[in-house]
Design a protein around this nucleic acid. Sequence first.
DNA 1: TAGGTGACGCGGT
DNA 2: CACCGCGCCACCT
Length: 118
Amino acid sequence: MDFYKRVAIVCGQIPKGTVATYGQISLLCGKPRNARQVGYALNRKLSGEDIPAHRVINAQGFLSGAGAFGTPKQQKGLLEAEGVKVSAEQTVDLRKYGWNHTMDLVLWLREHFEKEGI
DNA sequence: TAGGTGACGCGGT
DNA sequence: CACCGCGCCACCT
C-alpha cells in the first residue's frame, strides 16, 4: 500500500527535537481519516525500520506507542536524548514540542509523492 | 463473508 | 478538566 510509503516520507520530515501526532501524519499523507493506520504501520514497521517512529504520539501528547519499543519507556529515552521533555506519565507538551509544519512542506510532499508515483 | 481490533480523534456532557 | 461514545478504516480471524 502506497500509504505506508508516504508515512515513511512524512515521518522523515519531522524535525529532531519535535513530535508529530498520528492524525497529523495521516493528514500530511493525504488520508485525514487514517490516523489508526499510521499507528498500525509504525507498530508493524510497515514503513521501514529506520524512521523516527518515536517522534509520533497521539493528539493528547501521550506516548501510546511506548510499548512497541524494545523496553517500556524506550521511546521516552529516545525523545529526551534529543531534548524533548517527557513527563513521568509518558506525556509531552504539544504546545512546546509539537511539529508546526509549514504549507511549503505540504506542497513539497505533494510534488514528492507525484514524482515517486505514490 | 462477517465480525472484531486498534501506537486514533473529536465532539458532547 | 475528566469521561464517554461514536466515527473511522485497513487488517486479521
